[in-house]
Design a protein around this nucleic acid. Structure first.
Lengths: 346, 346
DNA sequence: CAGAGGAATGTCAGCGTTGTCAAGGATATC
DNA sequence: GATATCCTTGACAACGCTGACATTCCTCTG
């Protein structure tokens, strides 16, 4: 069997068939399909009827050869977290399909030296002709990539950008406000001794979460300093940070981790140390990723609308009437589950 | 800014440029690019030099319009597990890119009524012209889908098929043998009282794991029957099944769960019940997915080469010389971590 | 009511490849 | 040495659609 000639399925109708069938010119069919102005209602109706009857579907290859669009949106991926990535991907997919576009995936590896990275990008853009790219973190803040796309005149939308936010369009949530909300939750439960597990230093959103958390606690009147430890964004990082925190003898009653993975690690460290969550100590995360419901007790966290962010990013790319650059802020909300509770009575 | 005209990047060289540059005909360039026979070494060298110099890249749209290939491989997704999906996707992506193809993602929802599902498929195949599809479970065993693809004459490769294995090509591992290996591991540790958490009933691979596990134990001389409980493939399912098992008063010393997620749930149930893993009870999973290292203690499990399976599937699709139908078996191996240990002294 | 301007529709030449067919040259066969 | 056969190369017409431009038919304006 041969790849090339294997499609022996029913013959697809062409635009010519539609034109003949509805008694109008080829170009008029084209106009209807592309929603161009200056088409009478009568003609449109005729053509649409013919399209429906013949089950006509425009040929993407011919369209992109003749026109200048490819009807493909590229999703640029370089994120280690499968949960996050899949959610973004789902959102982008839905938006793209709703516009009759297709989703193309492209992975890049930004952990290589700059020149190699540039070579990757060049190859990618040369090969993968797309009408636009959705950039996921950490790519959203990769200046080399942004420069390259700008210079090539390729449209893009950034998900959760932190640096140079005026470049391209971006979809964000207010990390600081979200962290502040978590701070209030813990404060209201009665906690007064806190630790925070910082995310990766390169991750700007993580820094904003930290700042928002600490600011809010100060505003609420916290006296003790907040203990800070680097934990990264991984389970291993969380467990390590948790181990060393608990070994140090410091005993916060609540720990805020930079994301759900590290929070899960912290919880593991607590149970290793014989502390029960949430009775002895409260732990909370950020993202409401899938792992938040794959640990026991279920994790209190901040819901980030990741799928919606992907959807919004793709939609932005597909709206031709969009301004050059804009930052769209989406809503988060607190998800209180079982890993936070009032502190133990001293 | 307009999607259509935004690409003001450098002008791409066309095949015509290459032909002129190397002093040969258009068709000869085409022959070189497509690796067709009957091309002299001299001509090939000239053309290749010109291609390199002009940085020529064939235009995919023109190729698929003129020829009958699209240079796109579709990945059909309907799997709830992001870990699994991302791994498959990565493998498929790498294989596809190595052949200068592109990866298109398409989601379908097989949880809807049959007629609605058929409509989805029809729309998908009508719109998404691909040179072939990679099917992931549970789609690999969806007969409606297989019928549809066969009938449309579209090539596909199935990942982990269980039913009607002679249809299309398939990439599998030996689930029964893998489960048997796990059984031997536990037996060698000294366990004699087992429970097994069954996967979803519709999931054939899960059934094979169960059978392989029990068969092997019988072969080894197990006397007590293995306790069986349905847990599905989710964390919640695992925790529920674990709760009811432990509440029942039955006390196996080792629990084999159908996948890592349900194993994590079982571990949570154990710690809720005050049992320490692995000192009081051993727990093991299947897949070596990402969650196996996101629980404490790290999970003993079976490594399935999911990424390689995706890679193999796509490669199969891209080899034109492949027979109609073939089943390719890939290797698994045991990953012994911290969740299994000898049973407590009675 | 002539002329201008705009709305509605049509004609036609590509877009950048590949498939078909033909032609010329080299090699093999009797 | 003539004919048959294969190898190598090229000319040219699609592929299905859109962009530029032409044409017709209104409707408005003064």
């Amino acid at each position: 069997m041969n790849l090339a000639t294997s499609s022996t399925g029913p013959v697809r109708a062409t635009m010519d068939d539609v034109a003949r069938h509805s008694g109008v010119s080829l170009k008029s069919v084209s106009r209807v399909i592309n929603g161009e102005p200056h088409v009478s209602a009568t003609l449109r109706a005729k053509v649409e009827a013919a399209i429906a009857e013949l089950k006509y579907v425009p040929d993407a290859a011919a369209r992109s050869l003749a026109g200048s669009r490819t009807f493909i949106i590229g999703l640029l991926l370089d994120n280690p977290s499968p949960n996050y990535t899949m959610k973004v991907q789902k959102g982008v997919y839905d938006a793209v399909r709703a516009h009759q576009y297709h989703l193309r995936i492209d992975n890049v590896d930004s952990s290589v030296p700059d020149d190699e990275f540039s070579a990757q990008l060049e190859a990618l853009v040369r090969n993968s002709r797309c009408d636009g790219f959705v950039l996921t973190p950490p790519l959203s803040d990769n200046l080399l990539l942004l420069d390259f796309l700008d210079q090539s005149g390729i449209r893009y939308v950034r998900i959760a950008p932190a640096l140079e936010k005026s470049r391209g369009s971006g979809i964000v949530i207010d990390d600081a406000a979200a962290a502040a909300a978590m701070a209030r939750h813990l404060w209201d439960l009665g906690h007064r001794r806190y630790a925070i597990m910082r995310g990766p230093t390169a991750h700007m959103a993580a820094a904003r979460r930290r700042d928002g958390f600490i600011e809010e606690l100060k505003r609420l009147g916290l006296e003790h300093p907040v203990i800070e430890i680097d934990a990264g964004f991984s389970f291993e990082g969380g467990i390590r940070a948790g181990d060393s925190l608990l070994a140090s003898g410091l005993r916060p009653t609540a720990i805020f981790a930079g994301n759900d993975d590290s929070a899960a690690g912290v919880m593991a460290a607590c149970s290793k140390a014989g502390l029960k969550v949430p009775d002895d100590i409260s732990v909370c995360g950020f993202d409401d990723s899938w792992i938040a419901r794959s640990v026991w007790p279920y994790l209190t966290t901040v819901y980030q609308p990741i799928e919606e962010m992907g959807h919004a990013a793709a939609s932005l790319l597909l709206r031709r009437d969009e301004p050059e650059s804009a930052l769209h802020r989406l809503d988060f909300h607190l998800v209180v589950r079982d890993s936070t509770a009032p502190p133990p009575q001293a």
